[in-house]
Amino acid sequence: MSTPIRLGTRRSALAQAQSGHVAAALEKVIGRSVELVPITSEGDTNRASLSLIGGQGIFATRLREALLAGGCDFLVHSLKDLPTKQPDGLVIAATPLREDARDVAVTRDGIPLHELIPGSRIGTGSPRRIAQVRIRAPHADVVDIRGNVDSRLQKVATGELDAVILAAAGLSRLGTDSPLRREELGLAEWPTAPGQGSLAVETRTDADPELLSALAALDDESTRLAITVERAVLEGLDAGCQAPMAAHAVVAGSSVRVRTVVYAADGAQRIGLDVTEDLNGEYIRRSGSGNGADAADGADPMHAARELGLNLARRLLDQGAADLVSREHSS
């Protein structure tokens, strides 16, 4: 019997659920068993506010250390938790098909956020979501919270909070069965974090070629194009993973539509862009991306996607985004 492939994962129920989905898919491709290797990240033990400790790999660093040390063969991350700088020796081998990228507001009785009475308590630990709540429900009180999905839902069920903001994809992957009511927050007015709803499958650059090939089979090209644009916006802003900013891209054929917003922490100001570009040639030619005719024929759409994101970040900065975010030089 062949040796199982070891998948390093955080210990949370959500992390293990999404890792389990990837494990099952890989087993079908490679014909070998995959076992989960639970690893405790700093984000699982440090209960301080995310707005204070930042997003500088707090959920990924220890997992990556274990991977580089040979403690596992590959990792599954929530892509939105990853810094944009890729460590030496590691590669994102696959980005599976993205799930629902929206946020949802969870309440006891289904009252929309903007209709909650003044003084209602809305829980979230994300600076981006805090700013968005202050725009959507300016008379509510925002409560900075941490904890797993079940503990957050329990705070609403018991009346400690009137609402919490969560990722739709996380609720879907957990299959949470709850009598609480959900309000889906549309991406046009409530764009989400770069990479939200996406998973990143990471391994060593010197991994077994059989494993690299099998992981590549899990990759979804449209998802990778979209998240490449989104993460390049974050990279260009140089603001860190917990910046009060959003970027969401949708790929349709050779074109990509990007909605990106940078928020003041109190929600009082925002700077945004909504653009559609053709990555199959027109944008490459116009922006000077790629190398000559081959790139102009669409040979390097991932490079063009990254250049588009970086260009959007420059435009945001030109419009004053640097005054709204704390540039951490840590992405």
Rank of each mutant, 00 (worst) to 15 (best):
Glu235Tyr: 13
Gln56Ile: 07
Gln242Val: 13
His329Trp: 08
Leu75Cys: 09
Met302Trp: 13
Tyr263His: 10
Pro4Met: 01
Ser33Tyr: 07
Ile92Ser: 08
Arg173Trp: 13
Gly159Pro: 09
Ser126Thr: 01
Val233Gly: 08
Arg285Lys: 03
Asp73Trp: 00
Arg182Cys: 11
Pro194Glu: 13
Arg270His: 12
His114Ile: 06
Leu52Thr: 13
Phe74Glu: 02
Leu174Tyr: 05
Ala207Asp: 02
Ser151Tyr: 06
Val37Glu: 10
Leu113Met: 10
Thr95Val: 14
Arg315Cys: 11
Asp103His: 15
Ser254Gln: 11
Gly197Thr: 06
Leu279Met: 03
Trp190Tyr: 15
Gly57Cys: 06
Leu90Glu: 11
Gly290His: 02
Val258Trp: 11
Gly253Asn: 01
Gln18Trp: 15
Ser331Thr: 13
Val133Ser: 02
Val261Lys: 07
Pro83Asp: 05
Ser126Cys: 00
Pro83Ala: 08
Ala207Phe: 03
Glu27Val: 01
Leu7Ser: 04
Val275Thr: 11
Ser289Pro: 04
Arg285Cys: 00
Val142Tyr: 01
Thr9Trp: 03
Asp318His: 08
Arg257Met: 04
Leu211Tyr: 05
Leu185Gln: 07
Leu14Asp: 06
Gly43Phe: 05
Gln319Trp: 00
Arg10Gly: 14
Ala140Asn: 02
Arg257Ile: 06
Ala264Arg: 09
Arg181Val: 06
Thr205Gln: 10
Val201Pro: 04
Ser151Met: 08
Gly175Leu: 11
Asp177Cys: 02
Val133Tyr: 01
Ala296Asn: 08
Ile284Thr: 11
Gly236Val: 04
Gly281Glu: 03
Met302Glu: 14
Ala249Gly: 07
Gln132Gly: 08
Pro191Ala: 11
His77Ala: 04
Gly197Ser: 09
Arg315Leu: 12
Ile271Tyr: 08
Asp208His: 00
Arg314Lys: 12
Cys241Phe: 00
Pro179Val: 04
Ser178Leu: 02
Leu185Tyr: 04
Ala293Gly: 07
Ala24Lys: 15
Ala200Phe: 07
Met245Pro: 05
Ala25Glu: 11
Pro96Phe: 10
Asp300Ile: 12
Thr84Asn: 05
Ala17Tyr: 11
Ile53Pro: 02
Gly292Leu: 06
Val229Thr: 09
Ala299Gln: 06
Glu65Val: 08
Ile58Leu: 13
